[in-house]
């Protein structure tokens, strides 16, 4: 009985302390150690889709691209040049107008994996697109190495996304 009371008290105490608003810490464009995998935009490892040997410096603290600034070549210019010159069959349906977003992880060594594709229509509603996901995975990995996120001398794993704007099945813009 005492154990139950102690457990209940501990739980209540924890809830009380946990519920206190903490002091503001938000600067969103610097790295933060949150020590958890799960957050908005988290990509869980999927053995059917991902490389089991893909190295992560710290899977519990994968940053966002805007926190640690990974680069592909000089930046957006070189990123666009890669896709514009890629020998790739885009094969967007003629009826599709919207955005295809490719979100992936760049590890602390500049390698990429955990590539996921999502699409929205022109009204930003989620839609399913018939895409060759393996081909897209090869396209992203074919970019070669990135300059990984580097802040204060430390290299970070980070998430990055690239947006492909499509109108009537034609690629019109690459945002990344």
């Amino acid at each position: 009985m005492y154990q139950r009371i102690l457990s209940l008290l501990s739980l209540s105490f924890f809830a009380l302390v946990w519920s206190f608003p903490e002091v503001g810490i938000a600067q969103n464009t610097v790295p933060h150690m949150i020590n958890t995998k799960e957050k908005v935009g988290w990509i869980a490892f999927d053995p059917d889709l991902d490389d089991a040997t893909f190295f992560l410096c710290d899977e519990y603290n994968i940053q966002e691209y805007y926190q640690v600034n990974p680069r592909y070549g000089e930046g957006s210019k070189d990123l666009r040049a890669y896709f514009e010159s890629a020998d790739f069959a885009w094969n967007f349906p003629d009826t599709f107008s919207g955005l295809l977003t490719v979100r992936f992880v760049i590890n602390c060594q500049g390698e990429t994996d955990r590539i996921r594709l999502t699409a929205v229509d022109a009204e930003y509603r989620s839609i399913d697109l018939p895409l060759d996901r393996e081909a897209w995975k090869d396209l992203i990995k074919g970019m070669g190495p990135w300059v990984p996120g580097l802040v204060g001398g430390q290299r970070y794993d980070c998430y990055k996304h690239i947006v492909f704007r499509v109108k009537n099945g034609q690629l019109t813009d690459i945002i990344g």
Binding site: K39, V40, G41, S126, H161
Partner: peptide, 16 residues
């Protein structure tokens, strides 16, 4: 967080 991380469906639904 959704729009910054490429989840435009959720982000724009909320923003709308």
């Amino acid at each position: 967080a959704h729009t910054k991380r490429g989840d435009f469906a959720t982000g724009m639904l909320l923003l709308n």
